[in-house]
Write a protein that binds this DNA or RNA. Structure first.
Lengths: 111, 111
DNA sequence: TCCATTAATCGTATATTTGCGATATAATAT
DNA sequence: ATATTATATCGCAAATATACGATTAATGGA
């Protein structure tokens, strides 16, 4: 069937999955890289760097913003984006928290 | 159009995106959680825990394995999976490497 | 005011993902 | 040999994602 059952998982599981999904495309990784190396507001420069149409880049930016990975403000006729470091810290904390406990106990598994 | 342009990005960008995509579903996060809390080979126990059909869980396991996040070996009539810790370490290293440099320089951005 | 520039959104086509039931496979038990 | 159990795979339907061109909106300049 085509019923998506995402709601049946825990809040944390959904959050982590949402975060991962936002990064699940090389274009969005590339955008994050550009924003990270500049750490300043950039707008259409991203379009120049990526091998994609302006509308497509805009769509990717929207997804990153919706997921909370970046912040964006309108600055005159252009838009300004930057990394939301807090969101990344939260992701790292939650994500590594999922695993570290066990990893310490026993590195070795059966396969 | 419907032409996917993933090939036009760097190898690293594609790798990171692939890794993220493998985690971009709450069911797969849940599977990783189960494997991490046990750190031992588990097979159909995952099916009992998840609100999904056996065939669907098997498909998610396959995706995780293809992405290299988990290892799996056939053990008689059942299959045995476990976390591939090395893969996670590599991901964390690559991913945080993308950002840390700049983060140190300047926490504050324009938006 | 009118035009140029920048970026968001709409509409659309195609590709991929998600999910299930049914079936196939493979090893063990009877 | 046959049945049972555990998993993987196939085939399909529906939902989502990806990408683009065209259009719209909003600002700044001539």
């Amino acid at each position: 069937m085509a019923v998506h059952k995402k709601e049946e998982f825990t809040q944390k599981e959904q959050e982590l999955a949402e975060f991962a999904k936002a990064m699940a495309h090389p274009a969005r990784i590339a955008i994050l890289k550009v924003l990270a190396t500049r750490n300043e507001c950039i707008c259409g420069e991203i379009v120049d760097v990526l091998p994609l149409a302006q509308s497509t880049v805009s769509q990717h930016l929207k997804e990153l913003k919706n997921a909370g990975l970046i912040d964006g403000t309108v600055d005159g006729p252009r838009s300004c984006y930057c990394i939301n470091w807090k969101a990344f810290e939260k992701f790292f904390a939650e994500f590594s928290g999922l695993f570290t406990s066990l990893k310490i106990k026993n590195e070795k598994a059966c396969c």
